[in-house]
Computed example of a mutant assay.
Amino acid sequence: MKFPYSLALFDLDGTLVDTAVDIAEAVNRTLDDWKLPQVEEMVIRGWIGDGARVLVETAFRHAGSDVAVDDIMEGFMVHYGETLLLRAKLYPGVAETLEALQSQGVALTVCTNKPQRYVRPLLEHLGIADRFGAMVGGDTLPERKPSALPLLHLAQLFGRQPGDCVMIGDSATDAAAAKAAAMPLVLVSYGYPRGFDLRSTQALAVIDDMRALLSLHPQASGVASASIA
């Protein structure tokens, strides 16, 4: 079956790559620097997706600290870089799906709120960087998801209309960005939804495995989300 969209935009953390263990390590190292209590990884998983600054602010407020985020970020980014490649791993089926889409001539991009300078090193480490024709991070443009700007920028870069593209993500941030860009959306069920009800959206599908993306059928806007087995 031929994939129905000519450009695919992938979120990174929680969609292509499970990075929560490494991100949690960076957060806890930073909390330790400030003599604050550690936080369980499962709690930190619920904070991932809105960018490093929001993550840090959430962690420090959770710890009861009112220290200014600007005073924390430099140290956090050092730890973030140190832990970036420790235990990150691709989700099942990601490598095969990217290869299959590329073989069909689908242009592939990354659209993430992760700081730009960490995106390519992570993807190179995991062996999939060469699959992507462009990568947009959370600080690449003046606005990040849930703004439509990163999605529309990538569509324009490849000369596509939003309706010819599909955003693949795992959270309310991705869903809001796709809606703002009037771009079709697919959500994965295994990422970092942060309490968001994935099936409350007008996504084309909610999939449990990235390989299910290859069976995607285009649907009219407004169709309720569906699972792909």
Rank of each mutant, 00 (worst) to 15 (best):
L154A: 00
K145N: 05
L16H: 07
L85A: 14
P115A: 02
F76P: 14
S171P: 11
H153R: 00
V17C: 05
E124N: 09
A203F: 11
F76Y: 14
A95M: 08
W34G: 05
L108N: 03
V78Y: 07
E74K: 13
M73Y: 06
A95Y: 10
P92Y: 11
R45G: 09
P218C: 05
A24W: 12
V56G: 10
G138V: 07
D13F: 09
L16P: 04
A180S: 13
I72Y: 13
G133T: 01
R211F: 01
K179D: 11
V78T: 14
L204D: 05
L84N: 08
V21Q: 14
T109N: 00
V27F: 14
A88R: 02
V206M: 15
L198Q: 05
D197G: 09
E74A: 15
G169S: 04
V56F: 09
I48L: 10
E99S: 13
G14R: 14
E57K: 15
R45E: 13
L185T: 05
T15G: 10
V110H: 06
G169N: 06
K145I: 04
F196G: 15
E41W: 02
I128E: 02
Q102V: 00
S171N: 11
L122N: 06
A220I: 06
Y5L: 02
L101G: 01
L7R: 01
G93Q: 11
L149A: 11
V69D: 07
M135A: 08
T83D: 08
V136I: 15
V17A: 03
L198E: 06
L123Y: 03
H79N: 14
V67C: 09
Q202D: 15
L126W: 04
G133F: 02
P150D: 03
Y91E: 11
S147V: 02
G169Y: 05
V56Q: 09
A134M: 03
H153S: 01
W47R: 13
G222Q: 03
R160I: 00
A107R: 09
L213T: 10
G49H: 12
A148P: 04
T30I: 07
V17P: 06
L149N: 02
Y190H: 14
